[in-house]
Design a protein around this nucleic acid. Structure first.
Length: 191
DNA sequence: TCTTATGATTGTAG
DNA sequence: CTACAATCATAAGA
């Protein structure tokens, strides 16, 4: 069976290995190890091939560490990062900008100067929160359920799971949706 | 470009 | 953990 499966190319194998290694280092919080590992790559070519957030993040951290800010900015701009990485990457983005500005003017920046730097170099969209739109068919399903149980619009865990399956959303997204709608619906009905 | 609608997050309380 | 209010950020609409 699986006659169509390609024999993994050397590159794919290599990338898989790299991702695996990065995961280990990340899990162990072995930052030094991560830098050492990243230093094995003279260029970010493998990172381009590996559409993997962990790799991109590790690469950006390494670039920050060695002071290759241009490459770091490029990496941050060219990959969409998940929200749980945003804080860390935003800090890194600004820190790099501060360092560059400080070097250019030959002394440390005060708060006002830092503020100017932040204004001048706004965070790229890739490391900021993004609102994503539900599939069109999700809304009618959720609304119908909400209206049908208006007397008790608090779905239990099983119902949430059921709705999540029907809509293709996560249970958390279903919860959020109900939270938001209850809030907005009942707020609108007060006065 | 400005406004609105809406998904997600944060902080609080239970 | 959950529900909730308040708020943020932004996709879509005007």
């Amino acid at each position: 069976m699986n006659m169509n499966a390609e024999i993994p190319s050397l590159a794919k194998l290599a990338i898989a290995k790299i991702i695996e290694r990065c995961e280990q280092l990340e899990n162990n919080k072995d930052i030094e190890g991560m830098y050492a590992f990243m230093a094995l790559f003279p260029r970010p070519i493998l990172c381009e091939l590996a559409d993997n957030e962990l790799i991109q993040k590790a690469w950006a951290q390494f670039c920050f560490y060695i002071g290759n800010y241009t490459e770091m900015y490029r990496t941050l701009k060219n990959h969409q990062f998940s929200h749980w990485n945003h804080q860390e990457l935003q800090t890194m983005w600004y820190e790099a900008r501060y360092k560059e500005a400080a070097k250019q003017r030959g002394r440390n920046l005060d708060d006002a100067a830092k503020c100017r730097v932040r204004k001048k170099f706004p965070l790229p969209r890739t490391i900021r929160k993004r609102r994503h739109v539900f599939n069109k068919r999700s809304h009618p399903i959720l609304r119908e359920h909400f209206l049908s149980v208006l007397h008790n619009p608090y779905p239990d865990a099983a119902t949430k799971k059921d709705l999540a399956d029907q809509t293709g959303l996560t249970p958390m997204q279903v919860s959020n949706w109900f939270n938001n709608l209850r809030h907005r619906f009942f707020a609108a009905n007060r006065t």
